[in-house]
Each structure stands twice: as structure tokens, then as C-alpha cells.
Amino acid sequence: HTGNEWGTENRAELCFPQLFNTSCKKPTTPLSQVLLFHILMPSMSLLTVTLNLLVIIAVSHFRQLHTPTNILLLSLAAADFLIGLLFMPGEILRNTVCWFLGQLTCSLYNYISFVVTSASVGDMVLISVDRYVAICDPLHYPTRITERRVKVCVCLCWLCSVFYCYMIVRDDLSQPGKHNSCFGECIIFVEFIAGFVDLVLSFIIPVTVIVFLYMRVFVVAVSQARAMRSQVTAVTLQLSVTLTAKKSELKAARTLGVLVLVFLICFCPYYIVSLFGDEFLNSASASIVFYFFLLNSCLNPLIYAMFYPWFRKAVKLIMTLQILNASTYK
């Protein structure tokens, strides 16, 4: 080969051949990750968008589903929908081809990803608080947890996420591409101190609160279940209604407990890996952990389908186009 031929071959491997000295090489997907980025993640992205869109339509359309708990599930579904629509395709693009969308788009993509993830964690904390009050203080639940208050909390959760995540990545937003080693890549970079603060505020504290509240819910739920079994012989109408209400709340606590447990299983490995730093977080070896992190957004609506009859019934109406004739849920 002549020097000219070597130069031509080398340029063909670059993202931007015209920027010979500063362009990144085209990424090569290892065989072990071909299945992940070319088959599993595209399929999961499509499924995540579809399922969470069904949740959003169901809760938004049917007035009888406008309960405080379902409003929290609606907010969580919106976050999961954005993860499936933006985050998953972005990760496929970031790991399989050159980043042709520009450094500012890369910074905005990372920022929006942080916001949506932070909002998801906030929703999980709010869901835990909702179940804690419903089970541990049922008499005051209707007055303390109202639709209006829950909507305000959800809005505050998203606004706080927007402001908080801006503080975390503001350096990258003000100088897009500052930490990139070459043109054609899009990396996640967070300063060490900001990353440590984010780890504490976005993971350690929320998970501690969630686990503590659900441990309290579990203890009270067990005692209530025993109380209901001991009162099963009572035949008064009032007691029957009370027991039915308690069973309903306990069932909701169990379902949302599964939701929270799956959330912890999917999120914990990712945040543990993030302790090793940005180099490991951007490495190919972290892709499986990151896959489970994203998988949570797809599993949430499947949990609703398994445990909530209202969701299955609403989806049936939506899929059969009866939603136009059904303004209320029956």
C-alpha cells in the first residue's frame, strides 16, 4: 500500500473524514452487544412507548380513574414514555454510530435524560408516601391526599427535577462538547462533587425513604390482615364495607410494593456502577447494567396489566376504539 492508500483507508474509518486530526473513529459494536443494541433495545423502546402511552390515555381519558394514586402513576408513565421515546433511541445512537447531531444536542439529550430519571425517582417517593398514608393513617387519607395536592406535588417534582438537573450538568450545557476527546462522540460527564451530590440526592436518600416507608406499610398491613381474619365472622353491613375498603387498600399497597421493588432492582446496579466514575459508566461493560436501568420503564405498565383490572379493561376499550363512546369508566 502507498501512503495515499493508507490515508484513504484511515479516513474511511473516521466519523468526519474532513476533520482528520480531530474526528473520532466510527464505533464498532462488539459481538456481545449486537443483540443488545440492534434487537433488544429497539424492541424495548417500541414496547415502552406503546404500553406507557396506553396508561397515559387510560388515566387521562376516564374520569373515574382520576384518583390521587392514579395521578402519580400517570406522572410515572409520562416519565417512562419519554425514556422510551428519547432516551432509549439516544442510547442506541450513542453506542452504535457516530454522533452527527452536534454537541449542543448531545448536552440537551444528557440533560433531558437526567430530568426524566430524576422525576421517575421522585414519583416513586410520592407513591410510597401515598401508600404509607393510605395504610398507616386511613382515616385521614381522603383529606390529606387529595387530587389537587397530588397534582401540585407532581408539578413540583418535575420542576425541581428540571432545576436540580440543570445545576448538575450546567457546565456541560454552557460549554457543549467541552469534555469530548474528539468530534463524533457523545459522552456523559458529571463533575466528581456534582456526581457525589447526585448519588446522595437522587439515589441514597430516596431509596432510604422508600424502603423505610414500605417497611412501615408492610408491618401495618400484616397487622391489619390479621385483624381482618379475626373479624371475619362479623356480619354487620358497616363492618363488611370497612373490611372491603381495607382489602382494597392492602391490595393496592401490594401492587405498588411490587412496582417499588422492581424499581429498586433495576436502578440499584446502575447507581452502584456510577460510583466507579464516568469512564466505567461510558464503557461497553456497563451496557448490561444500563439495559436493566432502562428496562424498568417497560416493566411498569406490565405490572399494571398484571395487577390492575381497570387498566386491562381501559386498554380493551382503547384498542377496540370504544374510547370515543366511553367518556366514563365503568
Rank of each mutant, 00 (worst) to 15 (best):
L324V: 03
C106M: 13
I187R: 13
D172W: 12
L126S: 01
P142D: 12
L299Q: 00
P142F: 05
P176V: 13
N4V: 07
T67F: 01
N52Q: 14
V59W: 02
V162N: 07
L47R: 08
I265V: 11
V154R: 09
D278E: 13
L173D: 14
C182D: 01
D137K: 06
I145Q: 01
F87P: 10
N10R: 15
T69S: 14
M124W: 03
F87V: 12
P17H: 04
K313H: 08
K313Q: 04
A225T: 12
P30W: 03
A227G: 13
L36Q: 09
F292T: 00
I83Q: 07
F293S: 03
T105H: 04
A194R: 15
R216N: 15
A119S: 15
I323D: 04
V217A: 04
I135E: 08
T2K: 04
C182Y: 02
I318L: 15
V154C: 12
V289Q: 06
I204V: 13
I56S: 07
V200S: 08
V217F: 03
T208M: 14
I187A: 14
E9S: 08
W6F: 05
C165L: 05
A326P: 09
T96L: 02
R216T: 07
I265T: 02
A225Y: 00
L173P: 02
V150Y: 06
Y270N: 13
L256A: 05
L47K: 04
T96K: 10
L126T: 00
S297D: 06
L275I: 11
K316L: 03
T105M: 06
L299T: 01
K151Q: 05
K26I: 04
I145P: 05
D80W: 10
H38Q: 15
V55A: 13
I204W: 02
M215V: 14
P206H: 01
L139T: 11
K25W: 00
V262S: 00
W310V: 06
G177I: 10
C268I: 06
P269H: 07
Y132K: 03
V289P: 10
P142E: 11
V211Y: 03
M44H: 11
K246Q: 13
L51R: 04
I135M: 01
V260L: 01
P30V: 02
I112P: 15
E9G: 04
T328Q: 09
F163L: 15
V315Y: 01
G177C: 05
Q103Y: 06
N95A: 09
S120A: 15
F20A: 10
Y271P: 06
Y111R: 09
K316A: 15
A252P: 01
P30H: 06
V125H: 02
V150H: 02
